[in-house]
Amino acid sequence: MNLHFVMDQTVLERVIGEPSVMRGQLQKLLDTAESPNTTLQVLPLNAGGSPGLEGPFSLLTLPEPIPDFGYAEGQAGMFYIEDREHVRRCTLRFGILTELALSRADSVNLIAERMSSFE
């Protein structure tokens, strides 16, 4: 199973809890990023407006013949995205986000820098 995450840099900037809590959370991200089947990218603040502003979503790709589908949560609840056109739009959004986001290595460096600020 391969996982690919794109997270907004604001997640790294917003302090939740004591410094030790923040260090622990950021260390967990770094540990996750070390997995060879996981790609973690940070969408930098200077990316400006992006498809990420439309809200969080997940895309799931399963073996044939099962079609790809999406999943989203919001104030209205959770829902599965099965309509082919809606799944295609989510796939395009994800592609744009991965292009705007920092590389895997730069993302890890940014997380490590942020973690060091909590020492």
Rank of each mutant, 00 (worst) to 15 (best):
N2Q: 09
N2E: 14
L3S: 14
F5C: 07
F5K: 14
V6C: 03
M7V: 08
D8Y: 04
Q9K: 11
T10C: 10
R14D: 05
R14I: 01
V15L: 06
I16T: 04
I16P: 00
P19K: 12
P19M: 09
S20G: 03
V21H: 10
M22P: 02
M22V: 02
Q25H: 06
Q25T: 00
L26P: 00
L26Q: 07
L26C: 05
K28I: 00
L30S: 01
D31V: 11
D31C: 10
D31E: 13
A33R: 15
E34P: 01
P36T: 10
P36V: 08
N37L: 08
N37R: 13
L40S: 04
L40V: 06
Q41N: 02
V42I: 09
V42H: 15
P44A: 00
L45R: 12
N46K: 09
N46T: 09
G48C: 08
S50M: 11
P51W: 09
E54R: 13
E54H: 08
G55S: 08
P56S: 15
F57K: 12
L59P: 06
L60D: 06
L60F: 10
T61R: 14
L62M: 10
P65M: 08
G74F: 01
G74P: 05
G74V: 00
Q75M: 03
G77H: 13
F79Q: 15
Y80H: 07
Y80V: 13
E82Y: 05
R84H: 15
E85K: 08
E85N: 12
H86D: 15
V87G: 03
V87R: 08
R89C: 04
C90W: 09
C90N: 14
T91D: 07
T91C: 08
L92W: 03
F94D: 14
F94E: 15
T98R: 15
T98G: 04
E99V: 01
E99W: 02
E99N: 06
L100F: 07
D106L: 03
D106C: 04
N109Y: 06
A112E: 06
E113F: 11
R114V: 00
M115T: 10
S116M: 12
S117W: 12
F118Y: 12
F118L: 13
E119R: 07
